[in-house]
Write a protein that binds this DNA or RNA. Structure first.
Length: 263
DNA sequence: ATGGTAGCCTCGCTA
């Protein structure tokens, strides 16, 4: 069976409820990984998505961060928080197994990797440590030899080609050599950037700042990624960046990225 | 080099 998995930094789920419902109604992904819901679990408008046929699992936080999984298929074995630091109180990771009626199941995570700016603050070492925790967790998942997707806002510009103005990002936490090195470490484990597995075009972005006319100038960056286990990459059929959503009314500053699999 | 915008239980923080 075919299954589609989307990732989308929604930038405030309650401020973006109509925008989110509109896109989900049109695109109807089987699974949607949301980031920056910016609310506690009790304030997540679950009914608004259940009425569209989605099961809902959230890992929220007051005002900042927060991630969610929406799935038309049942969500099983939901895990909240990224392993490796019990003292970490930021809600940036949720994982579950999506059980398909035929063709087996797919493990999916929605993650919001720390931004890390400014790099001379404590935020940057937190980002790097979080990336190392993600690598260790991915290593554990890989040992299962199952298809999985780690989808989300990575706050990483993987290469020059993933920014309209790479020079403007030199020294930024999204583009520092240590950041890119840790992102590549995921690839070295065997994880595949789903988009780059299918599409080598330049100027394919997922984020445009609200400021300084970034959208109008197409001054974007590609920072929202679906990283696939080898078993998931084998089943990947296509990836699409839903660029047009950035030009709609009351948009998030990120657009959805959708990967399709034949399980 | 600067400033620009948006969301949050807002008067500053995060991005």
């Amino acid at each position: 069976m075919a299954i589609s998995v989307a990732t989308w930094n929604i930038n405030g789920i309650n401020a973006r409820l109509d925008t989110a419902r509109d896109w989900l109604g049109r695109a109807a992904p089987d699974v949607a990984c949301l980031q920056e819901i910016k609310c506690i679990d009790d304030n997540f408008p679950a009914e608004a998505f259940e009425s569209l046929g989605y099961n809902v699992a959230t890992h929220g936080q007051k005002s900042f961060n927060g991630v969610a999984l929406l799935s038309k298929l049942p969500l099983e074995d939901v895990t909240r928080g990224l392993a490796g630091d019990d003292a970490d109180e930021q809600a940036r990771y949720i994982e579950a197994v999506v059980s398909a009626p035929v063709g087996g199941s797919l493990r999916v995570a929605s993650l919001y990797l720390p931004n890390g700016n400014p790099p001379d603050s404590e935020k940057y070492p937190y980002k790097l440590a979080w990336m190392e925790r993600l690598r260790l967790h991915a290593e554990e998942l890989l040992a299962l030899e199952e298809p999985f997707v780690l989808a989300g806002d990575y706050n990483v510009i993987p290469s020059d080609r993933d920014a309209r103005k790479p020079g403007a990002w030199v020294g930024d936490a999204l583009f520092l050599p240590a950041t890119l090195e840790r992102f590549r470490a995921l690839a070295h484990l065997g994880l595949r950037d789903a988009f780059r597995a299918c599409d080598w075009r330049d100027r394919q972005y997922t984020f445009w700042d609200y400021q300084a006319g970034a959208w109008q100038r197409d001054n974007g960056i590609r920072i929202d990624h679906l990283m696939l286990s080898p078993q998931a990459a084998d089943r990947l059929s296509s990836v699409a960046i839903e660029r047009a959503e950035r030009g709609r009314e009351k948009p998030s500053d990120h657009v959805p990225v959708v990967a399709r699999f034949d399980l």
